[in-house]
Amino acid sequence: MNFMDWYRADRLPTIFCVGCGNGTVINCALTAVSEVGWKREEVVFVSGIGCSSRAPGYIDADSLHTTHGRALAFATGIKLANPDLQLVVFTGDGDLAAIGGNHFIHACRRNVDMTVICMNNQIYGMTGGQGSPTTPRGALSTTTPYGAEEGTFDLTALSIAAGANFAARWTSYHVKELTNAIRAGLETPGFSFIEAAVQCPTGYGRRNRLREPEDMIEFFRTHSMLRQKYDRLLAEGKLVPPDTIVVGEFVRRDRPVLGGKK
């Protein structure tokens, strides 16, 4: 079965802007889900609020499009009430790390058996491009008109520190690697976190000299560095270029899981 068969064809095309990376990540996630062979009846797709969180609405399976930031708490309830269901959560950087930050660390801590895919576009897309907890220092947004001054969250590191069993980061350029990482996440019991850097040409790119969708894809291509190389450079005391996106698998472990199949 091809990932295309998982879409609600009657709802396409999506509401996403031209060249938005969210669609790519949904393709990869659905490819991974069909590769692991889950049946539609056993998967529930959950999300919060944001452009990225519209994903479940396009998938032909049970899906819960919840309130802003709360997807993981809803998903926790579903998983614990019926551990036979497989949970896949789509979320955005604002949804997950700002308003939903507390649920995020606690879902990691509990190591609830679910796979969480965060489309990190470094911006609040749906509300028109305000700064988020992952907006890089200096980047322009409608609420950081003079450049973002706050520090950012490293979402993957946060998930690891909080206790997730699996964590990986890729980008919408690395479709094969991203698919494989999501698949590994689906197959790893416990909380699996996959951070997917995505382009938001409308809310982010337009204000940060990455106007065309392909500009951002090109940025991902040229600025990504494998985790192994990054670690080596650090160990050797060498300089890592700023703006580097470190990609790869960061953790895979088997801490005790909450809500595993009974």
Partner: peptide, 24 residues
Amino acid sequence: GTFIQMEDEIGSIAAVIGAAWTGV
């Protein structure tokens, strides 16, 4: 049955809604 102490009341009601959708 399942008891869970959530991280706050927003999470509590969210988990309850999620659980209710599994039919319990």
